[in-house]
Design a binder for these strands. Structure first.
Lengths: 226, 226
DNA sequence: TCTTAATGTTACAGAAATATTACAAATTAA
DNA sequence: TTAATTTGTAATATTTCTGTAACATTAAGA
């Protein structure tokens, strides 16, 4: 079950872009171009998260923030602030007014999306997918646990990330280079053969007696989750 | 759903040729003959991929590239660089400025098209066709799987490429030389009779009981997919 | 029908890719 | 600090794939 997101932001183009993409991801979205009205609508809408522009024509983002925090119904509403580059970042960072995160414009939708999910995951795990599931394999991103057929499996950090990666796109074949780029921290240089070893370790961990192999080797191409 | 492609290239004849052919293939294409303007238009256009000339009158391709990579909205926009022959290939190859591929002029449209699709397939699989289908034969380029009448078939790497090749132009007859050029990695020398053997292996794999032969021998000419 | 060139088929050795193992260095926990 | 875990790599084993040569079969024209 995806959650509800409210946007208060005066640049219509941004609202449009974000709203459209979030809806495509399954969120229910409502928005306002204006601070005062936005506040009212927001309280009717009861979102799981608020995207809030820092600089609005009528009310400043900060004022809205404070207003919200005073209202016992919304005291713990997660807020992500949208700020223009260089816009007193320090103030916002240090801000104890209860902003959960902030994103500086211009931002890519993917970046924003990732932040939203990260915040929701912490504050309201129900509304965001924390579990990646494929067949009888389950990975919980919050609890950092992995299960095969309801039996918990112990993985090292790298094997965990590797499995997480495969689970985001089951069946798709990834080359060793693609795996390296995504699973390993940037600018780390490891031999591409190293991946074989981690694949082996992952296989060994997730293959329990009597269940089928889940990682497929595609010669000359790479690996995939079946 | 095909994607959007933007072209920045000052030779009008090239732009025309490429734009026309890409549109014929179903892409939405926009272009600019000029670096500075191109940058602006590009950001409005929001393409899935950029074709970028290496040498432009005003800005160099490299500068554009850097500009794009600094903009968080376009940080991961795939870029294919167009370069004249011998034009500091090494620099471009070694380039860490985030070019995804490059094509040297003069190039055939087919070559360019193939590169574009290969890059898109990695970065943005939604916008490019991943399944090649002919009668009851299906090849999935992302999952690297082949099915005949919904029954999965196991192929070695070369047989996979060979079938992929035939599937891009069913019914067309290819000579052994054409097959060699396209299916085998460049600068590899193999006997042309070797192809017969691979055809045999491919036939053996894709011919399932009760279904008709799919590869046709055209004496003195070559082979085709029926 | 005979001849011949082209294609089909088979088997096999070497090559290439992947799997496995062991170990030392690096990291983390105790 | 020591102990335990995790990581990357190199060395080795195993598997799978490739190209070729040798021989078989087929098709088409003389």
């Amino acid at each position: 079950m995806k959650g509800k997101i409210f946007i208060i932001e005066d640049e219509a183009s941004i609202v449009q872009l974000v709203q459209h993409n979030l809806e495509k991801e399954g969120f229910v979205v409502s928005s306002s171009l204006n601070g005062n009205e936005g506040l009212k609508e927001l309280k009717k809408f009861e979102p799981n998260l608020l995207l809030l522009d820092w600089m609005l024509p009528d009310l400043s983002g900060i004022d809205i923030c404070k207003n919200i925090r005073r209202d016992s119904n919304f005291k713990s509403l997660p807020i992500i602030m949208l700020t223009a580059k260089g816009e007193e970042e320090d103030k916002i960072k240090g801000l104890e007014s209860g902003v959960d995160d902030y994103v500086t414009k211009p931002f890519s939708f993917n970046e924003l999306s990732a932040r939203i999910k990260a915040v929701l995951r912490r504050s309201d795990p129900k509304v965001v997918a924390n579990e990646l599931i494929f067949e009888d394999l389950k990975l919980d991103r919050i609890e950092k646990r992995v299960f095969r057929s309801d039996k918990e499996i112990q993985l090292g950090p790298t094997e965990f990330r590797l499995l997480e990666f495969f689970l985001t796109n089951p069946k798709r074949v990834y080359s060793r280079d693609q795996i390296l780029e995504t699973v390993w921290p940037n600018n780390v240089n490891v031999e591409s053969r190293t991946i074989d070893v981690h694949i082996r370790r992952l296989r060994q961990s997730i293959n329990i007696e009597g269940k089928k192999e889940l990682i497929r080797t595609v010669r000359a191409s790479g690996y995939s989750l079946i």
